[in-house]
Amino acid sequence: MSRADQPLFLGVELDGDGAHPAAWRASSHSPVELLGGRVHAERAQEAERAGFAFATFADSAVPPSDPDGISARLDAIQRAAFVAPLTSAIGLVPEADTVYTEPFHVATQLASLDHASRGRAGWVATAADDAETAALYGRDGQPGRPQDAVEVARRLWDSWEYDAVIRDVATGRYLDRDRLHHIRFTGDDYSIVGPSIVPRSPQGALPVFGAAALARTVDLDVALFDVRPGSADELIARAADTAAHLRSAGALAVLNLEFALDAAGVPATERLHALDARTPWPAHRARYTGAADGLSELIVALASAVDGVRLHPAVLDVDLTEFLFAVAPRLRDRIPLAIPRPGDTLRATLGLPDAVNRYQESA
């Protein structure tokens, strides 16, 4: 099967009010509402209606730095957990750091999210390497390695066999201790015996996402990558080259694409000009600005080059809605899309094989 014959999966970033640093100024709610659950639930539900395979939730230990913008955010795993019972199909993929966090706690929180979402959780593994984050944790250097944190998580997710919980009333046993396994991990910076404190989740092993740069050392299922801004032809050629390299490393290749659409009779360029006058939006990655049909054509062209596209709407309250009504129907008519259905796991939506428990296989 060629790349063109395989379903393209689409993701969307739901952090804050959008990718533009001044997006909050064009939103339909006050900034303080981002510290509650309603806005996050409504956006996740809208993304689910649009057919997105997954939604990501950005995070950082350091709050946003724009002095004129929003200066706080809720923890990404908490946001994903809140919307889990309020959605039924879309994958929920929060960011969590691998350097300064405790890998045992991250792994168990993510496993709990997979239980809450009934198998729709994933993880964007990040690697904070800036001095401000280090200082926040009272460190003067990186105490942890991303590859160690991901390996610990994968071992902990495997440390319970699926049938470890037996609930044997006659013998008074809740667990079969022989079906729990010590992971006995020793790295450069910490050691963990295990097992996890959370039973094996519906997916077993959650799909692990991460920036393309991590694919050299970290076991990723999905690599998220950027390409330099340029023409559509240049974007597609660069994306195809990068995607081929990432697939050779065993990861699905997902392009990050920012976008702003014409809306309510206002051209996208005019909308961005008004926002840029407040806070400029740096052009560090591929971006589309214009009519809905142009974005549809670009994504259709990218379908032969990449496994997926993660979209970053300029203003969520505007551009996500425009995508739902003006872009999503065009795409469904043009190319096969991996649109999740209630009951699907995120692994299944992404076309990943069922997870195999390393300890059960060797027992």
Rank of each mutant, 00 (worst) to 15 (best):
I90N: 03
Q147E: 15
R79I: 14
A243T: 07
S88L: 02
P207T: 05
M1C: 08
V318F: 09
P353I: 13
D189Y: 10
A260I: 01
Q360R: 15
R139A: 15
L235Y: 08
L206D: 12
Y288T: 02
A76V: 11
L156Q: 09
V300W: 04
I299Q: 03
G290P: 00
A237E: 12
R271P: 07
L214T: 08
R120P: 06
D317A: 07
G204N: 09
G144W: 05
L255N: 07
V254Q: 04
R285L: 15
P202H: 07
F323I: 01
G91Y: 03
D344E: 02
Q203E: 10
A363R: 12
W281S: 09
A244V: 12
D333V: 04
F9E: 01
V12D: 05
D140T: 13
G36I: 10
T345W: 06
A44P: 08
D317E: 05
L295T: 00
T108H: 14
R216E: 15
V222L: 06
T108F: 07
A239Y: 08
V318L: 15
Q360E: 15
G11L: 01
P282D: 09
L74R: 14
S191C: 02
E13N: 14
A72D: 13
A26F: 10
G230M: 06
A314W: 08
Y100D: 11
A80I: 01
R347F: 13
R177T: 12
A72N: 13
R179P: 05
V106Q: 05
F54I: 00
D15Q: 15
G290C: 00
P336Q: 03
L324R: 10
A215R: 10
A84K: 02
E95H: 15
D293R: 00
T217P: 07
G119C: 01
V208K: 05
D219C: 03
S30V: 14
G144S: 06
L175R: 10
H182P: 04
Y359E: 06
E258W: 04
Q109D: 14
L311K: 06
L272F: 00
L272Q: 01
I90T: 05
A96T: 05
S30G: 15
F57M: 07
D233E: 14
A355T: 13
I197Y: 06
I183F: 00
A61K: 08
A19G: 15
G172V: 04
V198M: 07
V165P: 00
H273M: 11
D241F: 08
V83Q: 10
P340Y: 05
A211L: 09
S201P: 08
D176V: 00
V306Q: 12
R120W: 06
A111N: 05
A116F: 15
A211T: 06
P313S: 09
A286F: 02
A328R: 04
A128H: 10
L257V: 06
V208D: 07
A355R: 12
L246M: 11
P282S: 07
W123G: 01
A260F: 09
A81G: 08
P63L: 04
G250Q: 08
R216K: 13
V315N: 02
S28I: 15
V306S: 12
A96G: 05
F104H: 13
H182S: 07
V227Q: 03
R285I: 08
E361N: 09
A84D: 03
V93K: 02
S196N: 02
P282I: 07
A128F: 09
G308E: 00
S71P: 01
F57K: 03
Q109K: 14
A223E: 03
A61I: 12
V222G: 04
H273D: 13
S28T: 15
A263V: 12
